[in-house]
Design a protein around this nucleic acid. Sequence first.
RNA 1: GCGGGCGUAACUCAACGGUAGAGUGUCAGCUUCCCAAGCUGAAAGUUGCGGGUUCGAAUCCCGUCGCCCGCUCCA
Length: 549
Amino acid sequence: MPAKDMDRVVSLCKRRGFIFQSSEVYGGIGSTWDYGPLGVELKNNVKRAWWRAVVYDRDDMEGLDAAILMNRLVWKYSGHEATFSDPLVDCKSCKKRFRADHVIGQRCPECEDGELTEPRNFNLMFETYVGPVRDDSSLAYLRPETAQGIFVNFVNVQQTMRRKLPFGIAQIGKAFRNEITPGNFTFRTREFEQMEIEYFCKPPKYLQPGEKSDIELHEEWVEERFNWYVNLGIDPSRLRKRVQRPEELAHYAKATVDIEYLFPGSLGWSELEGIANRQDYDLSAHSKDVSEEDLERLKLVRNLHSTQRLDYFDEAYVDPVTGKRGARYIPYVIEPSAGADRATLAFLCEAYDEELVGELKPEEIADLQAARTAAIKSIDKKLSDKKLEPGLAEQLTAIKQRLQDTDSILDVESVCNLAGSERVEALKKLRQLAARLCDEYSRVVLRLHPALAPIKVAVFPLKKNEPRIVELARSVSALLRPVCRTVYDDTAAIGKLYRRQDEIGTPMCVTIDFQSLEDSTVTVRDRDTMKQQRVSTSELVDYVLRRLE
RNA sequence: GCGGGCGUAACUCAACGGUAGAGUGUCAGCUUCCCAAGCUGAAAGUUGCGGGUUCGAAUCCCGUCGCCCGCUCCA
């Protein structure tokens, strides 16, 4: 079972060195997060798995790492300067928010004589200045998406790599958006990392018999990307494809399918990746000499600055009417655009698990029941009380329902953390009790796919006051270190050492005991089943590598 | 940005105007032949930050920053 609420994942991330709030010693800065020692391993593994799947495992892809700072004209012609700025107004009485260009006059459209605030301009792009002079001519933006770096390099990559359509370009990199409302941990942040593909293909009218259309290639990419998450451990029941309705589509998109993950808690179904069919919009936008009818069809302004036409010479093309060979045209593009931080967060949430180990004592069960009854009573009292804020009644009712339906300490504790619980004193008491019992009777285990796990193997001596065992354990650790990420630990009793590694998702623990001294075998303990297997040290490297596949 | 909640040790929380505490975790030592065992000891907080009220503030008030829940957003 994956995490039941995000708070527990956030807490684990901080406690175990995955993710820290940025600039914490100065009180933080809104919506930025730092990846700690284990977080950077996890996120690197996610990015590496993506790069492997979309670049190395295919024969039709190239990689790219474009600059974050780009010529301002890129953002003028991509449309971001115009469309990435939304002037907004708020109603002072009903507190609703509207886009200024959707409101007629000075009054709120929803309530009588609601006064509106002055329009505030939210340009979602971060601005900076390049060079010593701070004026308009040196204005630049931190890129709000990595995609444009690929588009403006289309011809460079196609020609230097001698590629024929269809082929794609993959890029991983930071992007920046001054989001109005960041939040939900690393899900929506102002600085984030994208994993984007632009897959260039022939427009429908230039297809030869047997070639796949943009529509088919779009569908293939949706399948491929969906399966990537599943192969790395996301349960398909928490992953879905959502086809955007025609009215949702951006004007440049012919079709978009979102891949959504069911995050824990209030975040719920949320987008990990969007796969769009952008047709020839982007390459046309950055090209000179685009025809009038194409400009009109794509609702583009004429590009007066670009020095190039980002097109493609298709020598295989045969005109069905004239029989003439060869054609020059601007390709279509399919864009699978994923969030590296979002994927990482999804894998963390999916992998997070708590399970009971051991039985509660009768008096502990009795205490728990008493506290639960008191909490339910308390909720009833609160609910029958005067008017509550909007939403609170629903939240409390949901908490009460879930409290009645369960008697597992794991559930009780997570229910006590739900939104609204802080308003009922008895729930706080119940949570304290449940938390104490959970500490004693449960283990937290991150069931990460081995390819994603930050540490692959941990090596322990069974007894740390036995020098021969310690020495052998250190040498086994040294044996594995060049092969995969390995740590050695002897600072606690064996049970605690196992639990520590469970919590950070280490798939295997190797333990050296007395028998090891005699026959050079060690035990390998599995994270998920806690089962052990004896393996000869001479076969250990092969065994570990096989298990990591 | 608006409304609601919150901010105390690394984590989870207690202390409700009178000397800041507990559990877990961490570290050191002893012990222990396999799942957060035990014993001894230790480090750790200018109570987010700044101001005010008061003889006295973690506690009351104001501001600010940050987090969470709703309106927004779409990687």
